[in-house]
Nucleic acid binder design. Structure first.
Lengths: 143, 143
DNA sequence: CAAGATTGAGGGATCAATCTTC
DNA sequence: GAAGATTGATCCCTCAATCTTG
């Protein structure tokens, strides 16, 4: 189910906005924070990505003008990543369609009770794996 | 949850057997059928993969000696893919550990009722997406 | 030495184009 | 033309090695 769902959502997002799921996740994280920028290691922690992956991906996004890098004044090893105006425009354009797709393909089909059961299942499995709580980074999903 | 779970399962499988999830899926499909071989397009349908993806992947597996290709006598466009002795040995060695990992990371944490609820949810969502029933290709999971 | 980040190589996945056979 | 399959380009992810600063 997850493969089918994520695949279809990614396909629609790409078709409607030219963005990948990963681009979307980065922009959601950045626009959700004050100033629209944060340190690379913070972003890596929020997304649960390896720093190498993030470094490669941010470079691609910089090349497309969606985000930019800025030096960190207090730690000369560090960098800030920030959304650009273009990045903000792109996610503002993409978000409504994506939310609609999630509703149509996923939420619409399940009852309130099923969603609650699923949330419990997810939390139980993650807890049993020793992983942190889900959704902690970006807040609970709006249904 | 799916990302964490699949990631951890893939990591363990790779560590214990040197195989990827994809290798495992191919070998499970092939060893589950009489003769241990089938046409490429059948395998693609069972796995839900694009034919291009399967073609690339089978080539890599041929190079590692896990499967082999054979000509199809009745249709000169077609090919059979078959498990090799090495492939059979590898999956026989890998399967118990993988099953144990699935039990430990996933099944162990959920009640009978939760598993049934989850199955219903999965079927409902897939049906709502217009996708076929899950598990149809490889049979129901043994708990 | 540890932490923040980058780099390059190698394996995968996707897409469009192609080739052969039905 | 359609079906079975391959190819090459491109992008993405992982891993190990590296560089710089704390």
């Amino acid at each position: 189910m997850n493969l089918q769902l994520d695949g279809e959502l990614a396909k629609r997002l790409a078709a409607e906005s030219g963005m990948s799921d990963q681009d979307y996740a980065v922009l959601v994280a950045l626009t959700g924070v004050a100033g629209g920028r944060m340190r690379l290691y913070e972003l890596a922690a929020i997304l649960g990505w390896e720093k190498s992956r993030l470094s490669h991906h941010i470079n691609r996004m910089v090349n497309r003008g969606l985000v930019c890098k800025e030096q960190c004044p207090s730690d000369r090893r560090g960098l800030f990543v920030g959304v650009t105006d273009l990045g903000r425009a792109e996610i503002d354009a993409a978000a409504p369609g994506h939310v609609r797709a999630v509703r149509e393909l996923f939420l619409r089909n399940l009852s309130r009770k099923q969603l609650e059961d699923l949330a419990t299942i997810v939390e139980t499995v993650l807890h049993g794996m020793g992983r942190g709580e889900p959704f902690s980074a970006i807040g609970p999903p709006d249904c």
